[in-house]
Simulated scan of single mutants.
Amino acid sequence: MTVTIKDVAKRAGVSPSTVSRVLSNHPRISLETSRKVKEIMEEMGYHPNMMAKSLVSKTTNSICIILPKPAEELFSNLFFMELIRGIVTQAGRSGFDVLISSGANEKEELEAVSRLLKGRRVDGVILLYSRKDDSVIDFLESNGYPFVLVGRSDRYENILSVDNDNVMAAFDATNHLITMGHERIGFVSGPPNLIVSRDRLAGYQKAMEESGLEIRPEWIVEGEFLQDSGYRAMSFFMNLPNRPTALLVVDDMISFGVLRGLNELKYTVPQDLALVGFNNIPLSELSSPPISSIDIGIYHLGYTASQVLIQAIQQPDKDIGYTNRFIIPHRLIVRESSMYSPGRK
């Protein structure tokens, strides 16, 4: 015989509406009552009819993560894996399921978002990127759908977003290299249409200008957030007649490609080229040499994005707080890859 909400309520000594509120994680239900009801559900083998629940409440208790390009490319970058881990952990604790979608281009991403939200398959969306003039953000904002951006929008100031101060982070990383005695510092960037690439480039330029150091166009190379971008950049940089003595690299995965390229060219880090990366993924500490990196709190970025979105879904009329933009602090982790002064003999 199928166990119903009424059966659970009778055993727990509460009303059926209280059981329903426990299932929807209603904030007015005490922790003690929630724990008691959930224990009885488990004892009785009760499984809620999520389809029926969705029809009644007009919610799905599901959120969607939109990946910025085909998943097989992104999952090779540990940044996205750690970001998603933070999102999924918090969502699970709040009783939400997580669906992941991607597209080969912006048009396919927009179609996926529209299909999921208009079909009421998810209650809200987390975007793992911020692009210039993004049509996906335009669609979400104009239709009033709940969403959170991991990053910064260049067009909308009041949307919910979770980010780092990427300008200041790149400024701090560049200043570290300047403090070590480097004057010729290059920058390996990500795709120019991504806001994070532009912000980190701006921070690098600001530090160089404030120190009175020259910025040469050939010292700035753009690429993708993949090892191959760093690998290809090395054959270019190391053949320059006046090459940099240090590099700021926009992502640690690109830094691994830099190390591979330098090794094949018989150069050593940091003696021939000092290096600072971004994201401080676990492999940065285990590489040879260990890579200095800006720790941006990847897990915390994802966890906070999930938390903010679910709060917006459950309490749409409640003011989130004094700001819609949540900034996760960064810190520079100094390791062997940058601990060398070009003036030291």
Rank of each mutant, 00 (worst) to 15 (best):
R131Q: 09
H182I: 02
S284M: 08
G92F: 02
S20W: 00
G144M: 09
L31F: 15
L160C: 13
I220Q: 02
F237A: 07
A91V: 01
P241C: 09
L99E: 00
S292I: 05
S235W: 15
K6D: 10
S338D: 07
M168V: 12
I100T: 08
S284E: 05
K318S: 12
M208S: 02
I327E: 09
S288A: 11
L240I: 07
N239D: 14
D133Q: 12
Q314P: 06
A169Q: 01
Y303Q: 10
E218W: 06
A52Y: 00
I137M: 08
I185D: 00
T304Q: 14
V167K: 02
Q315G: 04
F236G: 10
T2L: 14
P241G: 06
R115P: 14
G302Y: 03
S255N: 07
M51I: 14
V308L: 13
G13S: 06
M208V: 04
A112D: 07
T60Q: 03
V258G: 04
Q315P: 02
R155K: 10
D97R: 13
S197Q: 02
K107F: 15
Q311H: 12
Y299T: 07
Y322I: 15
V188S: 02
L286W: 11
D133V: 06
I195N: 03
I320K: 14
V125H: 02
A12L: 05
D123H: 00
S337E: 03
G261P: 06
D251W: 03
T174W: 02
H300F: 14
